[in-house]
């Protein structure tokens, strides 16, 4: 396959950055998109050029580290996958592929396609846990959790923190990410003790980090590799109002 890549290159946070063009001739359909980038990078090394910096780790769609905007879509043209799960067979010979980093004020570019997503960690820091220490747990089956509750908590908990929701959202809202975490814990009996504090503090931190507000375009749930539903955001709003009234 012959592919023309148009890739965002930016030396550092202060650099202005620009799209640069690279043509690669010897790609195959079996390659994953990231392997195509690996391949391009090896060619760049041999040409004595600096490689394109991009993030990746597990390469099986679970760690959430990879993620770039490909041809105008977070994680590429296919719905609900990660960048590492995208394969070159989804493109045609001769295609031009635009590759850009996640764009959001709260995700500043570090270099090329790598952005800083530590804002997510700080949201987590503000309540995405249950405040009990190791060693103080009661017997696991002492507190039965109905299957439906466990399942809905699991649906929300499956978020891998890749940031595609923020990247694709026109407002760079982190509502899907934050709500998934809140609903995971607040749905479970273990999370009840801190439910109001959790929702208030995590949503407040979301604003402090500079994420925009949700306007329900629904783009996030289409790009989310874990199919997390936008209904979570509505649920978070309900919880926040409840917390404001009762908390």
């Amino acid at each position: 396959m012959k592919i023309k890549f148009k890739i965002w290159r930016q030396e550092g946070p202060e650099d202005k950055g620009a799209i640069k063009e690279y043509t690669v001739n010897d790609l195959t359909e079996e390659m994953s998109f990231l392997e195509a980038l690996d391949h391009l990078n090896e060619q760049l090394v041999l040409k004595n050029e600096e490689v394109i910096a991009f993030e990746h780790d597990c390469r099986e769609g679970i760690c959430g580290q990879c993620g770039v905007f490909i041809n105008g879509r977070a994680h590429g043209p296919i719905n609900n996958i990660t960048t590492c799960q995208l394969h070159m067979r989804s493109f045609n010979d001769g295609d031009t592929i635009f590759v850009e980093p996640w764009r959001a004020k709260s995700f500043p570019v570090i270099k090329d396609l790598i952005v800083d997503r530590s804002a997510f960690d700080r949201i987590i820091e503000h309540g995405a846990f249950i405040s009990t220490n190791t060693g103080s747990a009661p017997e696991a089956n002492a507190l039965p959790i109905p299957k439906a509750v466990a399942e809905s908590a699991m649906d929300a908990a499956s978020c891998i923190g890749c940031g595609a929701c923020v990247a694709t959202c026109k407002n760079s809202s982190a509502a899907l990410f934050t709500s998934a975490k809140i609903n995971h814990l607040n749905n479970l009996p273990q999370g009840k003790a801190e439910e109001h504090k959790r929702v208030e503090e995590m949503t407040a931190q979301m604003d402090i980090e500079g994420f925009g507000s949700c306007t329900f375009t629904g783009a996030c749930e289409v790009e989310c590799p874990e199919n997390i539903s936008i209904v979570n955001i509505a649920e978070m709003h309900a919880r926040l109002m409840k917390a404001k009234i009762l908390g």
Binding site: I130, I145, K147, A153, L185
Partner: peptide, 18 residues
Amino acid sequence: DHFVQQGVPFAREYGGTL
């Protein structure tokens, strides 16, 4: 016990047990 307490959504039976 520890992980359940930390909010890990393990698979459950209809009766609520693990």
